[in-house]
Design a protein around this nucleic acid. Structure first.
Length: 245
DNA sequence: TGGAATGTTGGAAC
DNA sequence: CGTTCCAACATTCC
């Protein structure tokens, strides 16, 4: 579920909830008092990267799906939801195994929307500026940094680095300017390809690097290692992906 | 079937 | 006090 494009799909699927009043709410979350949601109108449903934001008159909720979170719209799983909302029209939104938090209602003061690779206000120049300020950061960590590439997850990270032929342990400060530019451009471009493939249920078959064993370009075995401060799985080709350091 | 994984947080340890 | 490390959370798949 988790990466930014998947949240984008969730937002599309729940657009009909905006403007509706909540007539019933509950779930096994202990983070919020769900009875406070009853009677509130859903003012907006937004996303910032992997955050799903529910804006209400009295509060704002932040849903984070972490690694295993799921949701159902007008359907239920065979498990108790962490949070559910029902509207007067009979629409129902169920969230499972996710983190629920009440956050400050002023979303604009907390979120840099231009950092979200899925946002219409995504700002590549600003991302490059943030990257230039972190020359010692590794490319694999930079892509997972939500302040720079909000919404990018481990799949997108591996696919982007393979496509731009950059080794995950490359130092940001060592990247030639065109490579830095390519990194930022591809993070945005691939996220939208991910979105389309995910909608068509063909995402996995388009993976070129993530969870793969052989480089499709030169046919040698991929290296697999947990790299960087993030210590997440990296799949990379030592022949095709240059290490800048 | 035990281990690993599309992720983040909070607190302990240093 | 800042930085780093690690457990915890929770689900599914191989």
């Amino acid at each position: 579920m988790p990466e930014g494009p998947s949240l984008f799909i969730l937002k599309e699927e729940t657009a009909c909830f905006v403007g509706q009043g909540i007539v019933e709410a509950g779930g096994n979350t202990t983070a919020i008092d769900t009875s406070r949601l009853v009677g509130q109108t859903i003012l907006s449903l937004r996303t910032w990267g992997k955050h799903f934001l529910i804006e209400l008159p009295d509060m704002a909720l932040r849903i984070h799906f972490l690694l295993f979170g799921t949701y159902r719209v007008n359907e239920r799983r065979d498990k108790p939801p962490r949070l559910f909302l029902r509207t007067a029209d009979g629409d129902e939104l169920n969230f499972y195994a996710c983190s629920v938090r009440e956050i400050d209602r002023n979303l604009d003061s907390q979120y840099d929307w231009s950092a979200d690779v899925m946002s219409p206000t995504w700002n590549p120049a600003r991302a490059r500026k943030k990257l230039r300020a972190e020359p010692d950061m590794l490319a694999c960590d930079a892509l997972l940094n939500q302040d720079i590439f909000s919404g990018v997850g481990n799949i997108i990270k591996n696919e982007v680095l393979f496509r731009i032929r950059v080794h995950p342990a490359s130092k940001i400060g060592a990247l030639p300017a065109p490579k830095l530019r390519a990194l930022v451009e591809e993070a945005h471009k691939y996220s939208f390809e991910f979105l389309e493939w995910k909608k068509q249920y063909v995402l996995k078959q388009h993976w070129l690097a993530h969870a793969k064993t052989t480089c499709p370009r030169c046919q040698i075995p991929y290296k697999k290692a947990h790299l960087g401060r993030s210590n997440r799985r990296s799949f990379f080709c030592e022949r095709c992906q240059k290490r800048y350091e």
